[in-house]
Simulated scan of single mutants.
Amino acid sequence: MTGTGFTVEFAAPKPQRLAHWWAHVLRWTVGPDDVVRPTGPGVELRFAASEADKAGKNAVHLELRSESYEHQRDTLLRLFNAGARFTDEGEDVPYQEMTDPAGNELRLLEPRQSDVDTGPVASVVVGSSDPSADSARWVSAGLQVVRRDPALIALHSTARTGPYLEFKLGGPTTGMLRVLPEL
C-alpha cells in the first residue's frame, strides 16, 4: 500500500515486460506478482494481460516529475534509451509527450515547485466528461480536492505525498489504463 488511495492498472499483451520497463525507468521495484511498487512516495502500478492491442489515446496517462532541467534531461534520456518514443504534440507545452513501449502516453513535465512530495510520478491524469462527478467518488473514498477550476479537479492524499489524481475535462474516456481504489 502506498497511501495514495488509488492504483493504476495497465492492460497489455505482455504485462510482465511492461511492468519491468516501468520499474526500470521509475527506479522502483517489481514484486513477484508483477506489481511495480514505489521505493518512496508513489502509486502502485498493476499490469493485467490483454489480448487487445492499444488503439487510440488512453483516458489515463502518467505525468512524470522533473526536479531540475538537468534531471529532466537525464530522465528524458533514460526514457528514450529504455524504448520510450516521442510523440508530436504540435504545440508549445511545458512537457515532453512520449509513449512507453506498449504505446501508452506519458508526459515528462518541466520542473515545478508543487511536485516536491509526489515521487517520480507527479500526477495521474484521467480524461473526463464531468470532472466534478468523477472526482466525487474519490473524495468520498478519502482523497481531498487541492485544485478546482472549470476544466480540472486535482485530488491528493490527506498525507500530501504521492502523485495527484487529476480529472481533466475532455480527451478520451477509455483505453488500456484505468485507476482503481488502492488495493
Rank of each mutant, 00 (worst) to 15 (best):
T2P: 05
G3R: 06
G5P: 02
F6L: 08
E9M: 09
A11D: 01
A11Y: 01
A12H: 13
P15G: 07
R17W: 11
R17M: 01
A19Q: 00
A19D: 07
H20G: 11
W22E: 07
W22L: 09
A23D: 10
V25Y: 08
V25C: 09
W28T: 07
T29C: 08
T29I: 10
G31I: 07
D34P: 03
P38A: 05
P41E: 04
E44F: 00
L45A: 00
L45E: 00
L45N: 06
R46P: 04
F47Y: 08
S50N: 13
S50D: 15
A52N: 14
K57D: 15
N58S: 15
A59F: 02
V60D: 03
V60Q: 00
R65M: 12
E67Q: 10
E67A: 09
Y69I: 02
Y69Q: 12
Y69N: 12
E70I: 11
L79F: 15
L79T: 15
N81Q: 13
A82M: 07
F86D: 03
D88H: 15
D88Q: 11
E89H: 12
D92P: 01
D92G: 05
D92K: 12
V93K: 09
V93Q: 04
P94T: 05
Y95S: 05
E97A: 15
E97C: 04
M98D: 07
T99D: 04
T99I: 07
A102T: 04
G103T: 02
G103F: 00
L109H: 14
E110A: 11
E110R: 12
S114R: 13
D115R: 05
D115C: 11
D117C: 08
P120W: 05
V121C: 12
G127Q: 01
S129N: 09
D134E: 06
D134F: 04
S135M: 08
W138N: 01
V139W: 04
S140K: 15
A141K: 14
A141T: 07
A141N: 11
Q144C: 03
V145I: 14
V146Y: 01
R148M: 03
R148P: 00
D149W: 02
P150Y: 01
A151H: 13
L152T: 11
H156P: 01
H156Q: 15
S157G: 10
A159G: 09
P163N: 06
Y164V: 02
E166F: 01
F167A: 00
G170P: 03
G171P: 02
T174L: 03
M176K: 13
V179C: 02
P181C: 07
P181R: 13
E182Q: 09
E182I: 12
L183W: 06
